[in-house]
Amino acid sequence: MTAAEAVGVLRFDRVTKEYPRSGLALHEVSFRVAKGEFVFLTGPSGAGKSTILRLAYFAERPTSGLVRVSGVNSEHASRREISKLRRRLGIVFQDFRLLEDRTAEENVGFALEVTGVPRAQIGPKVSRVLTQVGLAAKATAFPRELSGGEQQRVAIARALVNDPFVLIADEPTGNLDERATRGVFQLLREINAAGTAIIMATHDLDLVRHADYRTLELNRGQIVFDSAESPEPAA
């Protein structure tokens, strides 16, 4: 195990998150994601999956405890550091979050444009990732002209275009039919095989059972099962 793997690309140390209105969302959660690892976050609605992901890309700060992502920690991170960090993260949502008035390639290129990448470099990078997600032929299509699975592929392409070290996916297959789900999941596996760590929140237990990846099961804001530590899920 290398030093980087030992530290992990992402680390939660006794993280508690409490909201003023809805109360406790996470309680003393600790885990680590190693470089290139694929981790499922499972659990019922309201268990804290999305809260963990929001904390991981610093959309929230913990009430107590420490989140550390690639050397940036939640106690001291400035807004600028968070912006810089997000350029090295890929984030994917259930609802795709594409800009409806831009084509697939413009949506992907947008992630580069707004981070100051020179125009000349944007085109080749966008072509590369659209090819990688299998959408090179639909580069000029608008989101409304694409199926749900294709829209999610565009969103994944946008997440990949900055070569992230970790991809954070919040229910990426939640809005997709079975066939599209399999396609998107296969794509995520390929991305992971190429070395990008993936943390994926999902309700789809079939997907979890058929893949041999680490699973963190959450319930009421706590990790109740970690497949890396025990072979069977908690009752």
Partner: peptide, 10 residues
């Protein structure tokens, strides 16, 4: 919100 997610500065 997308700009913020992909790392654009304020």
């Amino acid at each position: 919100s997308i700009m913020r997610l992909v790392g654009a500065t304020d």
